[in-house]
Design a protein around this nucleic acid. Sequence first.
RNA 1: GGCCUUGUGGUGAAAUUGGUAGACGCGCUGGACUCAAAAUCCAGUGGUAGCAAUACCGUGUCGGUUCGAGUCCGACCAGGGCCACCA
Length: 798
Amino acid sequence: MSYNHIDIEKKWRDFWEKNETFKTDVWDFSKPKFYALDMFPYPSGVGLHAGHPEGYTATDIVSRMKKMQGYNVLHPMGFDSFGLPAEQYAINTGNHPAGFTKKNIEYFKNQLMMLGLSYDWSKEISTSDESFYKWTQWIFKKLYEDGLAKRVDMPVNWCEELGTVLANDEVIDGKSERGGYPVVRKNMKQWVIDIPKYAERLLANLDNLDWPESTKEIQRNWIGKSVGAHVRFKVDKHDESFVVFTTRCDTLFGATYCVLAPEHVLVKKIMSEEQKDSVLAYIENCSKKSDMERTELNKEKTGVFTGAYAINPVNNKLIPIWISDYVLSTYGTGAIMAVPAHDERDWDFAKKFNLPIIEVVAGGNVQEEAYTNTATGKLVNSDFLNGLEVADAKEKIIEFLSEKGIGEKKVNFKLRDWVFSRQRYWGEPIPLVKCEKCGFVPLEDKDLPLELPEVDSYMPTDNGESPLAAMTDWVNTTCPCCGGPAKRETDTMPQWAGSSWYYLRYTDPHNTEALASKEALKYWLPVDWYNGGMEHTTLHLLYSRFWHKFLYDNGIVPTKEPYQKRTSHGMILGENGEKMSKSRGNVVNPDDIVTTYGADTLRTYEMFIGAFDLSASWSEDGVKGCRRFLERVWKLQELVTEEEGYSKELETKMHQTIKKVSSDFENLKYNTAIAAMMALINDFYKRGSVTKGELKTLIVLLNPVAPHITEEMWQKLGFEGRIYETTWPEYEEAKTVESTIEIAVQINGKTKGTIMIGKDDPKDDVIAKAKEAVADKLTPNIIKEIYVPGRIVNIVCR
RNA sequence: GGCCUUGUGGUGAAAUUGGUAGACGCGCUGGACUCAAAAUCCAGUGGUAGCAAUACCGUGUCGGUUCGAGUCCGACCAGGGCCACCA
């Protein structure tokens, strides 16, 4: 009766599939629900890597436990199937990416099934399916109708030789990754989504989520709220003005110059004849630099005087206007007032170009040594602000500026518009047409989905448009509004689009009338637990929270937030402690482990390897250890006695183990849950027998981790029905406490011995016993006796 | 440079959240079984000293709070991650 994982796992895998064991009735609202979601994978050609099973097993464990605890559990899986690798494949081979994608999905799905994951495959989705992206397009249309999707001129990476726009990671050192051609920054029309409009809510609602504090903090930093003011400066001798954003409006008297971003629209209007050449040369130079270069070369400030002067609105002094790339066109207003006395960057710049430095918050040697970063202090050299504390000065100056109509309080966010168009083929077509008369007009709902047409070439066109632009038959259409001639938008959506709302679709994946029915959404939202990789903690979560809030505002979803609890599993590193990669030669293929040791062993191992949210190195010996554990569980069948309940001597241990395993599963502490089960079977072996009742409890507790072997044992031991139909073991709190316990006796905080006590022994008895136990080490002068019930006795003496 | 995170035996890691540091696994050592090996089972396993009971030391470093600190506070050191001229 040896443990043959290959036959056992195949038997139950086939059984579960055939019987649709894990199919969820999403309309059964009679039970409490639990929605356990995994970040769906991109179906790359290489299949699952060793890291995938970690997160998937974790959510699977909780899903299986919750089912046995009486919840209606939704545990679906799907594929984020639009994206670049399939596009590259299409470009390289000339084949349609759909076939390639379909093949990869099949491969992935097969691998996932081999792991014994309890997914409800009847709810599988794929973002590149028409029936799915119909609703992605529908949401985009709504965003457009509500004015949140806009077309704006914005700087992009443009490569003249390749004739295309490139993403940031396709540009290396200012040159195209492919070919090494120069890339410049150029303004082009792009579709963007106005996510900053939701910045305040995206920030505020983080507080109530059950997310790791570090994840929330990353989101907060990304949103980057800062409270400051707008101040308007007039330009001397020109009928022009510009606005700066500052968080330190109290230092306005210390502003000795202004700086505009090189791209600022005013620059070319106000530059003087003498400065014109150098200004234009500087702008030209900047446009050649990639973002990387602009930020990496931050050692030395560069800049050029425009020849124009601004008027400081508080004292009417003329201050020079410079341009420099240390001012970003994309943040704030693209213009700053420079206060070198109290800002590091301004100080560096002023020193380099010999600009005056005026201290306005007392303390420090700002002329010679360094700027002072003064969050508190008293104002000087500031006329009516003199003597005020920084905080008071801020209020007073804002009052002053508001009254004069030259400034106001202003909140700024780092969060920028979400660039939403891609000049690519393998993405959702944007469902708009451009009509000469009506402008951009969305398609009618009945015309969705707008399907991706077949194209002749998957390469972008010569002028940086998507391959769709070459399909004139498809592009030329009629306006849904006036019926006149119109052209389709040829950009597609980014890969973020489908993943921003896919979790909604699982609740009702075959709905043709809506993205999901209201009743289903009302019952299933929010997702109770969402696990995914660390790499998605910023953008994906932000984008999908934003879409969710937008849908909430439109009455489509019933909750303000999509994911109540979010976790991220750690990475699984190679045996040498480095990230797994082909080039390092340390890749572990989960298929091999499943074949050699079994899916149950792999699942157990990945859960036992360490803390769930920390990275861990692979260890083949560790895998063997987990296999040995399952073998020992299997062999318990030879030690089983006919006794149904728990034996007297292990009763407490049984109740403790149920308690620990249940709460550890809930709290993602899989490693210690498994350790507790190992300890339990060690006790069975020590005794040489196990009762039927004890073994029954053990295999139910172990079932979420190792579903195949426990299902087989359940059947072999002759228990009723299937293990997945049983209920989760319960424990009695009173029975988890030992009647006699060993506690430590300390003298002055150092452990000197132990005593056995009854759990309800009175304090005086315990202390007396403790003193007896360490009598030879006590000194006569006892100052204090401390008894922490059930824990420790500490005797303080001199 | 900013923010986050981690630092515990030979090794992966535990520690009821301030109460016997090292559970559980791996490895190693010794033993049983075997002609032998593998597998399996049993025992041991933080360091130093000792035949031993035992004693002292021990959670990155230095200080602090406390009857008591791996856990709390302050400073520092090292590894990992994210952001990075954000006015």
